[in-house]
Write a protein that binds this DNA or RNA. Sequence first.
RNA 1: GGCCCUGUAGUUCAAUGGAUAGAAUAGAAGUUUCCUAAACUUUAGAUCCAGGUUCGAUUCCUGGCAGGGCCA
Length: 596
Amino acid sequence: MQLQATIATSISQALQALFNITVDAGQIALQPTRKEFAGSFTFVTFPYTKQAGKGPEQIGQALGEYLKEHAAEIKDFNVVKGFLNLEIEQTEWLSIFRELMQDAKYGYGENSGKKVMVEYSSPNTNKPLHLGHLRNNFLGYSVSEILKANGHDVMKANLVNDRGIHICKSMLAYQRFGNGETPESSNIKGDHLAGKYYVQFDKAYKEQIDELVAGGMEKEEAKKKAPLILEAQEMLQKWEHNDKEVVDLWKQMNGWVYEGFDATYKNIGVDFDKFYYESETYMLGKERVEEGLAKGVFFKKPDGSVWVDLTDEGLDEKLLLRADGTSVYITQDMGTAELKYNDFPYDQSIYVVADEQNYHFQVLKAVLKKLGKPYAEGIYHLSYGMVDLPSGKMKSREGTVVDADELVQEMIDTARQQTEELGKIEGFTPEQAKELYHTLAMGALKYFLLKVDPKKRMLFNPQESIDFRGNTGPFIQYTHARIAAILRKAAEMGLKVDVTAFDTVDTMHETEQEVITQLANFGAVVKEAGNLQAPSVIANYAYELAKAYNRFYQEISIFNETDEQARNFRIALSAMVARFVHESMSLLGIAVPERM
RNA sequence: GGCCCUGUAGUUCAAUGGAUAGAAUAGAAGUUUCCUAAACUUUAGAUCCAGGUUCGAUUCCUGGCAGGGCCA
């Protein structure tokens, strides 16, 4: 909204007129006034004491008087120490509200012309998605939506890690123990089936290691010499040489896994514009390594391995290509970065990847810069912390992983149970009920994972973490459902509420004004979330908005209001809250129900 | 060993260098003739330690301590 800018301009003029201090209006920061003081915006005067040669209270007092006289929108003020609290005329809030109502695109940025690629999810094809992937997927999806809302051209990409020794482990175990099992024959989701054989491999592999150790071998050596691991490595070689039998099995099993992933993605409501497969990109990086050698920015060690020296950048020497010519993780990423840029010449390329890869992405960016690539500068690692369990870190080998599909199903069951207990299911068809449970479950889960600052590690307690009360997704969804009921009733009464339906309203209740204040923040919040790439900013906003509305809802009756104009205003206010709740939740990838 | 991240109520999370550090939950006490009580109101409770910069530090800097991660 313009209001803050207008006030900033007035303050700038006042500082000039009263104290001969020149401050650009853009430099004047207003903050929301704390609840315990009267006013909407607060200006801090401490920084100007030296230039003005006056105390902070004196400055505040003088500014306040000047503004009250010269600025139409300022109704009153009070000064507490160095804080000048400004009260805004109610008519000003009302005119802001009317503007918001008529601006259907409020909060959404103009086309910025900026292209941003967001890579997220990026699963391995040897096991199903788990809780950590959920944080990743929700973050990636939400950040994409937020960037779109800021006017950027966004491409969502998924880089599937579909090759490598881990895939061969699943394949080998399947060959060994599978007996031709398929997702259809056993009624197991494809990704879970592949995961099952990955676990079986590990079990059999461990047994072999134990046997070798029992026979007197060192453990480290046993790990390398166990027949199964040797076979897996051989299989990888065959795969790289296009051995038909191996490639066919690989295609078959990956096909199962993709079907499983598709189902999960659909269920959790995320999507992608473009898929990349490491099997198709892993060779490209080697060309970039050759290029670096030719340019002299990389070097070869006597054993033939290729390295880059990044000590000038505060990093170490880093291996880029093994002595046997096989690629490492970063080699592949160098290739993929180029491919991405060719497909979609981005200004920024965001990688939503866990924070254990922090070093990797520093190196990737530094290496590409050394090669002088135009796409190096735009690389940004959106790093997020692990999701821990009460028992500690999730470890797939120890079976402490929380499976994504199972978790979602548990959430849905919980949602059903809660809804039934509250007796809120009347009048729902079974299909509608099922949809509601899903909406609530995903709302709770997504909100829980997104409201936290991404870079912090977070704790997930399957029994306790997901609540439907308090600062949660369902709390916000509930607010929306309540408003939807009001709007249904208004429609039944044949009320058409637009800005003309309350044009004589010129005063309002405090809680109504607070709701408008929150509504007016939406634009700034979307912008801030975009700049920080932080869904948590949106989540906090949606919560504050819902809370402000609930307070209003509790204290003020709408349909018992005898003044038609005041009633219409409250309905319009409710409709606007529903709109921004819906929009901010959409930015988090969360749906809002009409009834619950 | 080197580098990076994180330390805030019992617990899970907030706080562009600003006021008496906010919420939620668990605890205590209330609110249904009225639009959905998955709500609302009241209450109690915290910045890891020691320095420094600043009118002002949870925030920035230095040194510890604790947890986690990465690189060998």
